[in-house]
């Protein structure tokens, strides 16, 4: 598939590979992974179970170092994590000793934004994810779906160029998961951001993505790409939706 190479690219990964070496064995987790992500694009990295999707996302974030290759953010090479990329963790990684407000404003606080300004901006994102009224609650007192909203608001509040989301809804029950998929679409339409979203759920991938990047299993590399140009909000019983879903599932079954 032809891939566009343009100045609009916010994030580029070139020839990424990752090898874990232990005393006993060498594991190739990622091999020759290339991607270019355009501004405000919603890209879903989709692939089966244990295939290094999280590793790719952590490399894109700077949380893991690639064995080869480089990451360009706004055409600048980056090697360390930083606030221009936001990360929503599968494990939530909410700070339990901070309230909802404390979590959401954390990034602004460590970067020296004045209290009045960061309160205002944090409040905006708390409202955006629908958590108004819970500002002073500690994470232990709120549900899993609400904690994930805190994680999303916290990442958004830093106003990063790229949002990296690692199976953020993996731990939620099916009902909450559908709800959060609608929410993330609504938030993304309201405040456009570049998103790279990892999932192993095909329905979620087709529901959310502008473009699905189908990954091959260990070592992980790109198998194929699909542009999903269905209008939002999407319906998971729409015949076009089901056709795309079917097509990708068949390709995936062959590669497995």
């Amino acid at each position: 598939m032809e891939r566009t190479r343009s100045i609009d690219n916010v994030l580029q990964a070139r020839d990424i590979s990752k090898t874990f070496v232990t005393d006993r064995e060498t594991t190739h987790v990622v091999e020759k992974f290339d991607i270019e992500v355009k501004k405000n694009e919603f890209v879903v990295l989709f692939g089966p179970g244990q295939c290094g999707k999280t590793t790719i996302l952590k490399i894109l974030a700077g949380l893991e170092k690639p064995s080869t290759g480089e990451i360009l953010l706004n055409n600048q090479k980056v090697t360390e994590p930083g606030p221009a990329r936001g990360y929503v963790f599968q494990s939530l990684a909410i700070f339990p000793w901070l309230t909802v407000m404390g979590n959401v404003e954390y990034g602004l606080k460590v970067r020296g934004v004045s209290k009045a300004e960061r309160r205002e901006r944090a409040q905006h994102y708390i409202n955006l994810v629908g958590l108004e009224g819970f500002e002073n609650h500690y994470p232990v007192k709120i549900s899993g779906g609400m904690k994930q909203r805190v994680g999303i608001a916290r990442a958004y509040c830093n106003e990063p160029d790229v949002l990296l989301m690692d199976e953020p809804f993996g731990a939620l029950d099916a009902q909450t998961r559908y709800l959060m998929q609608d929410e993330i679409t609504r938030i993304w339409e309201k405040e456009k951001r570049t998103v790279i979203f990892v999932t192993n759920n095909i329905e979620e991938a087709v529901y959310l993505a502008d473009r699905i990047v189908l990954l091959k299993n260990c070592p992980t590399s790109i198998d194929n790409e699909y542009i999903i140009d269905l209008p939002r909000p999407r319906s998971n019983v729409d015949p076009k939706f089901l056709t795309i879903r079917q097509e990708i599932t068949e390709v995936m079954d062959k590669t497995l």
Partner: peptide
């Protein structure tokens, strides 16, 4: 993961120690 989260949000090593390690 909490340290990673703080780092992604822009915290320096000293800030991570003060705002993450100590309360945790």
């Amino acid at each position: 993961e909490l340290i990673g989260a703080a780092r992604m949000l822009g915290a320096s090593d000293n800030q991570i120690f003060r705002t993450i390690t100590i309360p945790a």
